[in-house]
Design a protein around this nucleic acid. Structure first.
Lengths: 112, 112
DNA sequence: GTCAAACTTTGATGGCCATCACACTTTGAC
DNA sequence: GTCAAAGTGTGATGGCCATCAAAGTTTGAC
């Protein structure tokens, strides 16, 4: 009893309703270059990617932190596949709440 | 001699070439809610506004700091008119370098 | 010249956040 | 069961940045 899911720590993390998310939170998420790197990889990918397939210039625990922030800001959706955690952009939903924002940012993803 | 302009402190402050400005700097400028407030006032105004006409929830010295950051990020142009400092959005130039970004952000300027 | 208005500069302070190492958990393979 | 792989959680730390008060500067008005 109470083996794996103790204390409300879900295996599928909570995803906020994008309509409850403000511009401030989104900008705070996207101002970090590592997080923008993640988003641009997902933006370019045809499907979900595991955390490990995205090369990041930070430690694993920091990477976890960044994915967490992006999820809380409504930018990505996460789910487990085996021991890997998959990540996908919530692109359509996000575009509905913030029309044009993602495209405008990703158009410049390469140039610093 | 050496009355007003000592030490290279110009009365007309330097304005960067927008093409030299990166997305990172722009986002760092726009992530601050006070600075977004300034930008949205200028976005809505038909002409340049003096610092004083924009009501801000911070002290004067902090306001000066925010205008400085916005100028360095290529978002506004500043010039003196008497003892007032006027501010205007560098809208067309900025749109050329960051197409759609300002519009996408200002569309949400009200909602947090 | 004097004065007030409108900013600017300087220095100090506080809080937040990205970062890491280290220990831990979960899962799939053998 | 054992083991390795892939992340997660927990402090702790450091640096940066928004903020302010106080003193200074510049200008126009009188």
């Amino acid at each position: 009893m109470a083996t794996t899911q103790r204390g409300g720590r879900e295996r599928v993390p909570p995803h906020p309703d994008i309509r409850t998310i403000g511009l401030q939170q989104v900008l705070e998420a996207l101002v970090d270059p590592v997080r923008r790197l993640i988003v641009s990889e997902l933006y370019a990918a045809p499907e979900a990617l595991s955390c490990g397939t995205i090369e990041l210039p930070v430690s694993k625990s920091t990477a976890t932190h960044h994915f967490h922030v992006l999820r809380e800001a409504g930018l990505i959706r996460q789910y487990y596949a085996g021991t890997s955690r998959m990540n996908a952009l919530r692109r359509d939903e996000f575009d509905e709440s913030f029309p044009g924002l993602l495209d405008a940012l990703m158009a410049r993803a390469d140039r610093a």
